[in-house]
Design a protein around this nucleic acid. Structure first.
Lengths: 207, 207
DNA sequence: GTCTATAAAGGGATAGAC
DNA sequence: GTCTATCCCTTTATAGAC
């Protein structure tokens, strides 16, 4: 039951899927309505029949992408699982999701940077993930001597950074580290265990 | 002596500066020649007089940005300073540079992802930073028991990720962590010391 | 609902005067 | 070197037939 939506192949759905693909890869201005229509196998006029304008179609896609990504972050911040278990799961899940859709993080980052007001005021859901539970868990773990003292905000940012950034910078990493596509896939697959052990090592209490 | 180029206010220079600003913030397709001309305080036709086409002007900007960013990476990888000192300096310098030009990393990441062939085959310098020296230093430090065993490739990726990603995701972090612009600046300023201590902690040899 | 044809606007590029 | 005017292709959007 991964996808509650009906996976029909109605024109509306086909248009949405095509738009998703094109917008995520090329951005608002890079995407052309003609290409979306071609990829959906229908006519340009039909795009406007279902979604009134390019902007509207774009917004639909952005909203869908956000709603697919946000629950994982919410789980990291709000769920009651033990701290390290949560972090490990988050790393696992984000790396997995992102390796299937490598353009999604870049797409979202662009959107929030180019048009922050529109992004957060009209597209983003009003019920934000609340980080308090997570902060509190870190606090407790520090006091119990289970982990080294650390600011929870920085911890979470560190973990997310190490998961997502390598995907964004993949082309550059390939060139600098001299990796072919094949080595790069292997490298990215190793990252789950590497990030986990790096984070665990950083959190070890001082002797 | 930060900038060897002459900082004249010739039309050519003004056009370049304006183009830099607009392209870096809006990307190739988002940027309009009219806006660049307006910002440079000259006419659209003059853009074509100095730089034959939009593409050419864009490429000039991309090349300039790369050449400003690359030396720091080269220093991290190739210089002979002790490992931890190099890492600390890299963190310091990148955070400083990037906080002054927050859009530059996103600009480069977009460029390399949307058009990797053009980026690496025709724009990127042929003499790549070579990571061998850095790898070797990590290797030695591990063997000498100075740091915990770690794959050098992952170490470097971890450090760069933690430096750059928070800038990319800043708008989101602000919203999720409930920070205003002021808190966010403070937070980003703390990162230098936080990243450094996180990395040092992760590298502590096991007892 | 889906198409063809076309309007309307936008934006890169050039001609030619000064 | 710099400007005004204009060309013309691209792209979004609509009208109207089926």
């Amino acid at each position: 039951m991964d996808k509650p939506e009906i996976q029909d192949d109605s024109s509306e759905q086909r248009i949405f899927d095509a738009a998703h693909e094109v917008f995520v890869q090329k951005g608002l201005h890079g995407a052309k309505m003609q290409e979306i229509a071609d990829r959906a196998g229908i006519n340009k006029a039909l795009l406007h029949y279902y979604y009134r304008s390019k902007e509207k179609l774009y917004e639909t896609v952005v909203r869908a992408v956000i709603n697919r990504v946000l629950p994982v972050l919410r789980d990291l911040l709000e769920s009651d699982k033990p701290l390290l278990e949560k972090i490990d799961y988050f790393i696992h899940f984000y790396l997995q999701t992102v390796s299937k859709n490598p353009f999604v993080p870049l797409f979202l980052i662009n959107e929030m940077n180019k048009n922050p007001d529109h992004f957060f005021e009209t597209i983003f859901p009003k019920e934000l993930p609340k980080p308090d539970r997570f902060f509190q868990q870190v606090q407790s773990a520090v006091e119990a001597g289970e982990i080294k003292p650390i600011t929870p905000q920085h911890l979470i940012v560190n973990v997310i950074s190490m998961c997502i950034f390598p995907i964004l910078a993949r082309p550059m990493l390939g060139v600098i580290l001299g990796m072919q596509a094949h080595d790069m896939r292997a490298f990215l697959n190793q990252r789950e265990v590497e990030i986990r052990s790096f984070v665990h090592a950083a959190l070890r209490p001082a002797p």
